[in-house]
Amino acid sequence: MLADSIAFVLLVIGLIFNALGVIGLLRFPDVYTRLHASTKATTFGSIFLCLGVVVYAIAHYFWTSDSQYLMVIVHTIIAVFALAVTNAAGSHAIARAAHKSGQKPEPSVVDRLSEAGL
Protein backbone atom coordinates (compact mmCIF):
# COMPACT_ATOMS: atom_id res chain seq x y z
CA MET A 1 0.00 0.00 0.00
CA LEU A 2 1.25 3.44 -0.95
CA ALA A 3 0.22 5.36 2.19
CA ASP A 4 1.87 2.73 4.38
CA SER A 5 5.19 2.98 2.61
CA ILE A 6 5.17 6.80 2.58
CA ALA A 7 4.35 6.91 6.28
CA PHE A 8 7.06 4.32 6.99
CA VAL A 9 9.71 6.36 5.14
CA LEU A 10 8.66 9.57 6.93
CA LEU A 11 8.77 7.89 10.34
CA VAL A 12 12.24 6.44 9.66
CA ILE A 13 13.57 9.86 8.58
CA GLY A 14 12.09 11.44 11.70
CA LEU A 15 13.60 8.83 14.00
CA ILE A 16 17.03 9.20 12.36
CA PHE A 17 17.01 12.96 12.87
CA ASN A 18 15.77 12.66 16.47
CA ALA A 19 18.56 10.19 17.22
CA LEU A 20 21.13 12.46 15.59
CA GLY A 21 19.91 15.38 17.70
CA VAL A 22 20.37 13.44 20.92
CA ILE A 23 23.78 12.11 19.81
CA GLY A 24 24.82 15.71 19.12
CA LEU A 25 23.49 16.72 22.52
CA LEU A 26 25.72 14.11 24.12
CA ARG A 27 28.73 14.72 21.91
CA PHE A 28 29.19 18.46 21.37
CA PRO A 29 31.51 20.38 23.71
CA ASP A 30 29.57 23.41 24.96
CA VAL A 31 26.03 24.64 25.49
CA TYR A 32 25.69 26.63 22.26
CA THR A 33 26.69 23.81 19.96
CA ARG A 34 24.45 21.47 21.96
CA LEU A 35 21.60 23.90 21.34
CA HIS A 36 22.32 23.70 17.61
CA ALA A 37 22.05 19.93 17.64
CA SER A 38 19.04 19.60 19.92
CA THR A 39 16.91 22.43 18.54
CA LYS A 40 17.33 21.91 14.83
CA ALA A 41 17.53 18.16 14.63
CA THR A 42 14.75 17.33 17.07
CA THR A 43 12.41 19.95 15.58
CA PHE A 44 13.00 18.55 12.10
CA GLY A 45 12.63 14.98 13.29
CA SER A 46 9.39 15.73 15.12
CA ILE A 47 8.05 17.49 12.01
CA PHE A 48 8.67 14.31 10.04
CA LEU A 49 7.08 12.08 12.69
CA CYS A 50 4.00 14.32 12.57
CA LEU A 51 4.00 14.20 8.76
CA GLY A 52 3.85 10.43 9.02
CA VAL A 53 0.76 10.77 11.21
CA VAL A 54 -0.73 13.26 8.71
CA VAL A 55 -0.23 10.82 5.82
CA TYR A 56 -1.88 8.04 7.83
CA ALA A 57 -4.83 10.31 8.66
CA ILE A 58 -5.23 11.46 5.04
CA ALA A 59 -5.31 7.85 3.84
CA HIS A 60 -7.95 6.95 6.43
CA TYR A 61 -9.96 10.06 5.57
CA PHE A 62 -10.17 8.94 1.94
CA TRP A 63 -11.09 5.37 2.87
CA THR A 64 -13.72 6.07 5.49
CA SER A 65 -14.55 9.80 4.92
CA ASP A 66 -14.94 10.05 8.67
CA SER A 67 -14.67 13.73 9.60
CA GLN A 68 -12.77 12.77 12.75
CA TYR A 69 -9.63 12.26 10.67
CA LEU A 70 -9.93 15.79 9.27
CA MET A 71 -9.62 16.99 12.86
CA VAL A 72 -6.53 14.83 13.31
CA ILE A 73 -4.86 16.40 10.26
CA VAL A 74 -5.59 19.98 11.29
CA HIS A 75 -4.63 19.49 14.92
CA THR A 76 -1.37 17.75 14.03
CA ILE A 77 -0.42 20.65 11.74
CA ILE A 78 -1.22 23.12 14.54
CA ALA A 79 0.93 21.06 16.93
CA VAL A 80 3.81 21.14 14.43
CA PHE A 81 3.57 24.92 14.16
CA ALA A 82 3.45 25.33 17.94
CA LEU A 83 6.50 23.09 18.23
CA ALA A 84 8.54 24.94 15.58
CA VAL A 85 7.80 28.42 16.89
CA THR A 86 8.27 27.59 20.56
CA ASN A 87 11.49 25.67 19.97
CA ALA A 88 13.07 28.55 18.08
CA ALA A 89 12.07 31.11 20.70
CA GLY A 90 13.03 28.83 23.58
CA SER A 91 16.50 28.12 22.19
CA HIS A 92 17.06 31.85 21.73
CA ALA A 93 16.06 32.41 25.36
CA ILE A 94 18.39 29.67 26.62
CA ALA A 95 21.33 30.96 24.57
CA ARG A 96 20.78 34.51 25.79
CA ALA A 97 20.49 33.36 29.41
CA ALA A 98 23.62 31.22 29.14
CA HIS A 99 25.60 34.14 27.78
CA LYS A 100 24.23 36.44 30.48
CA SER A 101 25.17 33.99 33.21
CA GLY A 102 28.75 34.30 32.07
CA GLN A 103 29.26 31.12 30.06
CA LYS A 104 31.65 31.70 27.17
CA PRO A 105 31.47 29.60 24.00
CA GLU A 106 34.37 27.31 24.86
CA PRO A 107 36.01 26.34 21.59
CA SER A 108 35.41 29.53 19.64
CA VAL A 109 37.31 31.59 17.12
CA VAL A 110 35.52 34.89 17.70
CA ASP A 111 33.05 36.34 20.22
CA ARG A 112 31.67 39.68 19.09
CA LEU A 113 29.00 39.70 21.80
CA SER A 114 31.50 39.90 24.66
CA GLU A 115 33.43 42.54 22.74
CA ALA A 116 30.26 44.60 22.32
CA GLY A 117 29.66 44.28 26.05
CA LEU A 118 25.90 43.75 25.99
Binding site: F44, S108, V109, R112
Partner: peptide, 24 residues
Protein backbone atom coordinates in the same frame (compact mmCIF):
# COMPACT_ATOMS: atom_id res chain seq x y z
CA UNK B 1 16.58 26.16 4.16
CA UNK B 2 15.36 24.02 7.08
CA UNK B 3 16.16 20.81 5.20
CA UNK B 4 19.59 22.08 4.24
CA UNK B 5 20.26 23.20 7.81
CA UNK B 6 19.46 19.76 9.15
CA UNK B 7 21.61 17.95 6.63
CA UNK B 8 24.42 20.33 7.60
CA UNK B 9 23.93 19.73 11.32
CA UNK B 10 23.75 15.96 10.75
CA UNK B 11 27.08 16.15 8.92
CA UNK B 12 28.63 18.14 11.79
CA UNK B 13 27.28 15.70 14.39
CA UNK B 14 28.68 12.67 12.59
CA UNK B 15 32.10 14.09 11.72
CA UNK B 16 32.51 16.45 14.68
CA UNK B 17 34.12 19.10 12.48
CA UNK B 18 33.12 22.40 14.12
CA UNK B 19 34.67 25.86 14.34
CA UNK B 20 32.15 27.93 16.31
CA UNK B 21 32.00 31.64 17.06
CA UNK B 22 29.61 34.49 17.75
CA UNK B 23 29.34 37.12 15.02
CA UNK B 24 27.44 40.37 14.60
Amino acid sequence: ELTKANLDVAYRIITGRIRPGIIR
